[in-house]
């Protein structure tokens, strides 16, 4: 079976990775395996250590302890230019004194790829990010979204084993960000390169990636598919950071669920009903008063203070109602109903 091993090597493997800056420990022991061809997200608030981990994989920072393996090879002590990874930087880091084409060709020129092949590959890369005809422009003559795509082309043209993306969509406006999310995903499927990207935007992580690692205070709180992380958060931190935290704990848990501990239910799983609404055998429910109504176009968030203590947020699609009608519900008495299989115990 040995000969199968190289194919099964993880694209990236982190073993006991730590990094301290003076007295501050930014990364406190990370173990992680990312499979070949995976679109992997490192999600966490700022200061959670995710960018430092990315920089250690790229080689810009050297770890205080632990190991970085790329394709089964230990690269912990190698310089950035010796590693088969490329990075899309948060500020894009395009060379301002070079044309778009020279930027994209830079890596190939360093690797002494012959001129004609270089040109051909660079033009193909620019084509794949839909920037044909922009070769002669300077980065300063491009919009934010175009610069972002040049940065992507400049990295992809080298066909690295792993592409690292540091908050790649952070500087774009909402509309463009949503477009690029779809585009990045399709580009990744086309080229088949492992994408490892860092973001603080939970929606971005959930929509784009195959798997997500949720970071907090230099540690990984949970690794899993977007659905796993969202539907079954492993810790209270994950529950609150990924989506809205709807926790039922203590006396409320005893009163409503008939058991102790901490449980999470996602807002869209809650159904807003009349006080005397029927509750099915496989359902739980709790009564309360609507404290706040937040109308958000396609849906409305109802903040409900439970009679047994605690507060839950319910998200309802605005299928028939208008903003006038929903805001009138403020202060009214309601019953929240949800299916039992949507409540999950959380380790505190």
């Amino acid at each position: 079976m040995f000969w199968f091993m190289p194919d099964q090597e993880a694209a990236v493997r982190l073993i006991g990775l730590r990094k301290s800056f003076g007295p501050v420990e930014a990364v406190s022991g990370i173990d992680l395996e990312i499979a070949d061809g995976e679109f992997f997200a490192m999600l966490g608030p700022s200061g959670s250590g995710k960018t430092t981990v990315l920089r250690m994989i790229a080689g810009f920072e050297s770890p205080t302890a632990g190991m970085v393996e790329l394709g089964g090879v230990d690269v912990t002590r190698l310089a950035p230019f010796e590693r088969d990874v490329n990075t899309v930087f948060q500020d894009y880091a395009l060379f301002p004194h070079m044309s778009v084409l020279d930027n994209v060709e830079y890596g190939l020129r360093v690797k002494k790829v012959p001129r004609s092949e270089r040109r051909e590959r660079a033009l193909a890369a620019l084509g794949s990010v839909r920037l044909d005809g922009f070769e002669r422009r300077r980065p300063s003559q491009l919009s934010g979204g175009q610069r972002q795509r040049v940065a992507l082309a400049r990295a992809l043209v080298n066909r690295p084993r792993v592409l690292l993306l540091d908050e790649p969509l952070g500087a774009l406006d909402l509309k463009l960000r949503e477009e690029m999310q779809v585009e990045l995903k399709s580009i990744q499927r086309e080229v088949g390169i492992t994408f490892l990207f860092v973001t603080h935007d939970q929606e971005e992580a959930l929509t784009m990636s195959d798997r997500v690692a949720v970071f907090d205070q230099g540690r990984i709180e949970q690794v899993g598919t977007p659905a796993e992380v969202y539907e079954r958060p492993a810790t209270p931190f994950v529950a609150s950071f990924v989506g809205t935290s709807n926790l039922i704990s203590g006396d409320a848990a005893h009163a409503v669920l008939g058991k102790g501990g901490t449980y999470s239910v996602r807002p869209e799983k809650l159904r807003l009903s009349d006080l005397d609404a029927a509750v099915g055998a496989d359902e739980h429910s709790a009564t309360g008063t609507v404290a706040e109504v937040v109308y958000a176009g396609p849906a409305t968030r109802f903040v409900v203070d439970l009679d047994v203590g605690g507060r839950l947020v319910a998200l309802q699609q605005n299928l028939q109602v208008s903003s006038m009608e929903v805001t009138e519900l403020r202060g009214s008495r309601v019953r929240l109903v949800w299916n039992r299989r949507h409540e999950f115990a959380i380790a505190s």
């Binding site: 790229a58 080689g59 810009f60 310089a79 950035p80 230019f81 990874v85 490329n86 990075t87 930087f89 948060q90 500020d91 880091a93 395009l94 060379f95 301002p96 004194h97 830079y106 890596g107 360093v110 690797k111 400049r154 990295a155 080298n158």
Partner: peptide, 27 residues
Amino acid sequence: LPNSLLDAAGDLGARGWRTFRTVVWPL
């Protein structure tokens, strides 16, 4: 000069001297 430009040159395979010649010096 943004540090990310130096990182980017290294990331694209350039060693110190080349980074100096093609990025740091012109800028």
